[in-house]
């Protein structure tokens, strides 16, 4: 009986060996993007290349220090972060590997990749102003700056100072306005809060009626509008969105970007994966999966983003995140933004 089992096991191993493509490897990707939404794209790469992707999801702020090198998990080959500031932090720490691939450069426009080839953006989203239609008129909102005005006293929700979204916004405003004006603005924001800053997205707080206006991520709002749940559909209809700074600098952007780590054990396969994901068709699928804008030129947008209308973005602002972390931290401290 044991001999029969051993024989079957041997056959299975042989069959698997024949079925597996020659030279197929496993690439470990550590990311802060939601795995459930990415998985179909990762599976598609496996189908087409034979290489497998092990995606390990971690919180954005913890990911930089962990890099998935926790007990039992293999060392990461790549990172896929939803925040440019964190990625620049890894770059500054010398943890990223530069890539110089012409095909990759042609697929990702210069504004959305590192000039030295250390990271490549694949999708983008903007920080927007969300409001409760019943209590706020769209015409009352126009810019990030205006949120610090006294008319919003006790009506505003923002994320904590530790959250990458807050750090990115303040870094961009710091680059635009300088230290003094940014501190003044941050103090105004703190004075207008309806509740202390929370780590999670302020959308639920808006829906719950805790605040009237919130600094939020447009992709969460776009995702909510697609929801099949009746209560979320109702909530989405109760909210409105304003693209900020359209007559000025443009809306502040953040990128979801990919980089290969210096420590990568499978750099060639990681590069193949990066090229695959930067392909126009895959950027389009990624945009649909994540409710974000593709970075490539002329790639069709998901329908729910088309419905949000076009907006002017501050591409120059992409240079700011992660550049002056200490200055940003000081602004938070001076404004009392916890």
């Amino acid at each position: 009986m044991k001999a029969v089992h051993a024989g079957r096991l041997l056959l299975l191993v042989l069959l698997l060996g024949v079925a597996a493509p020659l030279g197929a490897v496993e690439v470990v990707v550590c990311g802060s993007l939601e795995q459930a939404r990415l998985q179909p794209l990762l599976d598609r790469f496996t189908q087409e290349s034979g290489d497998t992707i092990r995606y390990v999801q971690d919180a954005p702020d913890r990911l930089a220090e962990h890099l998935c090198a926790t007990d039992g998990a293999p060392q990461a080959d790549m990172v896929w972060l939803s925040d440019l500031g964190l990625l620049r932090g890894l770059q500054a720490a010398g943890m990223l590997r530069a890539l110089d691939v012409p095909l990759l450069r042609s697929r990702v426009p210069a504004s959305y990749r590192d000039p030295g080839g250390y990271w490549y953006g694949l999708s983008l989203r903007a920080r927007v102003l969300l409001y409760v239609r019943a209590r706020v008129l769209a015409a009352e909102l126009s810019s990030y700056e205006a949120l610090a005005e006294p008319q919003w006293h006790g009506r505003l929700c923002v994320r904590t100072a530790a959250h990458p979204d807050s750090r990115l916004l303040v870094a961009v405003l710091l680059a635009r306005w300088g230290n003094e004006r940014t501190v003044e603005w941050a103090r105004g924001i703190m004075a207008n809060l309806a509740r202390p800053p929370e780590d999670r997205d302020p959308l639920p707080a808006l829906i719950a009626g805790i605040c009237d206006v919130a600094l939020a991520d447009m992709s969460h709002y776009a995702h909510l509008r697609l929801s099949e749940r009746i209560d979320e559909q109702v909530a989405a209809r109760q909210l409105g969105m304003v693209w900020p700074d359209q007559e000025g600098w443009g809306a502040v952007l953040n990128l979801s970007a990919v980089a290969i780590l210096r420590q990568a054990r499978q750099p060639e396969a990681a590069q193949r994966f990066l090229l695959f994901m930067a392909d126009e068709a895959m950027q389009q699928r990624l945009a649909v999966a994540m409710d974000e804008y593709p970075v490539g030129l002329g790639i069709p947008l998901p329908g729910n983003l088309v419905d949000l209308g076009a907006f002017k973005a501050d591409l120059h602002g992409l240079a700011a995140p992660g550049q002056q972390p200490d200055a940003v931290q000081r602004i938070f401290q001076q404004a009392g933004w916890r």
Binding site: G250, L253, P300, L301, L305, G309, A310, F311
Partner: peptide, 13 residues
């Protein structure tokens, strides 16, 4: 209809 964005200009093609 399909649409693409030019975020720098705020244009939609």
């Amino acid at each position: 209809v399909q649409a693409a964005l030019l975020p720098e200009n705020g244009w939609q093609v």
